[in-house]
Design a protein around this nucleic acid. Structure first.
Length: 268
DNA sequence: GCGTGATGTTGAA
DNA sequence: TCAACCTCACGCC
């Protein structure tokens, strides 16, 4: 489920439901029990996202959450259902509950630790103040593939396997192109596009990348609605015809993740 | 019921 | 480069 858009949406969801008042904090599973007891009853001051990291502010401390590949956060109206033994963290107020399961990280941290996390993350297209120049400085002198750079959270924060595949397709860039061979214009366009796509991802809570104006050759051929719920060009469409040119979408492993691209539409 | 894979990251080899 | 971690939904028997 989680690329950056999911986490920014979760920050919004927490703010709407919990911010500005006391919250009950518990860890039915027990693995966050000690910290939960310490935080229980505090006001939730704010919720913030940077890339795939979520921060919940409770008094002078933060809960740092990273969903990893499997983590999920579920919300619902009170009363909360009986907690099962996979619920790492439960937030509760008179109107709402939120359950966290399977996260890679759920930890109580202070301001200094939070700052350190921000510092090791690259700019995030969903954070308005973040500067794409910082990413460009690394990309433009890198001999690493663009595909790997886009997934490197130190370079750019929030992009995952779906947005990577889709944004490279939308800009006709071969994933194996090296960072140093990307033009400044291409990078600016990629960043701007990610900001638009991911912002829409936050709004819709899913990844849609297909635009009618990008489908001149696909009249009457509906884009695939992937299992993840969004409309995409190439992600998980291996061996299916490209929506634009009809060439079979290719797939390959790269750094332990599956890469998808159209060998005709995307150029070195 | 079992095996698999998934929008992620870390740390050891 | 690879294993480890965390959970759940799906396909196949």
């Amino acid at each position: 489920m989680p690329e950056g858009h999911t986490i920014h949406r979760l920050a919004q969801d927490h703010t709407e439901r919990f911010a500005g008042r006391p919250v009950r904090v518990s860890s039915p599973q027990g693995r966050f029990a000690e910290s939960a007891a310490l935080l229980d009853g505090r006001h939730l001051e704010s919720a913030e996202a940077h890339g795939k990291h979520l921060f919940l502010e409770l008094g002078d401390a933060w809960i740092h959450i990273h969903l990893g590949l499997f983590g999920k956060l579920g919300f619902g109206p009170a009363p909360a259902p009986p907690a099962t033994d996979t619920v790492r963290l439960r937030l509760l107020n008179p109107e709402h509950w939120a359950d966290l399961r399977g996260p890679t990280a759920c930890a109580l941290i202070g301001e200094a630790e939070k700052k350190a996390i921000h510092e090791r993350l690259g700019p995030d297209p969903l954070r308005p103040a973040d500067d794409p120049d910082r990413a460009w400085k690394r990309i433009s002198r890198s001999r690493t593939t663009v595909a790997a750079l886009l997934m490197d959270q130190k370079v750019i924060a929030g992009v995952g396997n779906v947005y990577r595949a889709e944004v490279l397709f939308r800009h006709g860039i071969d994933p194996y192109r090296l960072g140093k061979d990307l033009t400044r214009g291409e990078w600016d366009a990629l960043w701007a596009d990610l900001a638009v796509l991911m912002r829409e991802g936050v709004r819709n809570n899913r990844i849609d990348t297909v635009r009618d104006e990008h489908l001149p050759g696909a009249m009457g051929r509906p884009p695939r609605v992937d299992d993840h719920g969004g409309e995409v060009y190439v992600y998980r469409r291996a061996n299916m015809p490209c929506h634009i040119c009809g060439t079979e979408v290719r797939t390959a492993g790269l750094a332990a993740r599956n890469l998808f691209w159209c060998p005709t539409c995307q150029q070195r």
